[in-house]
Amino acid sequence: MIEPRMDLGPHLDGNVLAGPLREIFAMDVTAATSRCASCGAVGAVAALHVYANAPGMVARCPTCEEVVLRMVRTPDAAWLDMRGTVSLRIPM
């Protein structure tokens, strides 16, 4: 658990997605619970491992390290790729 399985360098966590995602969504998505499409692990978006040293932000599952979501902000658009998320449970 202390080292990721691949050498991906240091990561942050889903808390850093709060600002970029609130630019798009009316709710705070980091408090939502997501289910990983690869391993089925369930946990807060805030607890995903986020690699911010790429173009954009890549959030990986803390259990299996597969990509859960990616976000890239360009000057005139935001790209959100959620291929690794089966579902999001958003507290209302």
Partner: peptide, 9 residues
């Protein structure tokens, strides 16, 4: 400044 953000921690 923009915020506040983050509703989990």
């Amino acid at each position: 400044v923009r915020g506040p953000v983050g509703g989990w921690f």
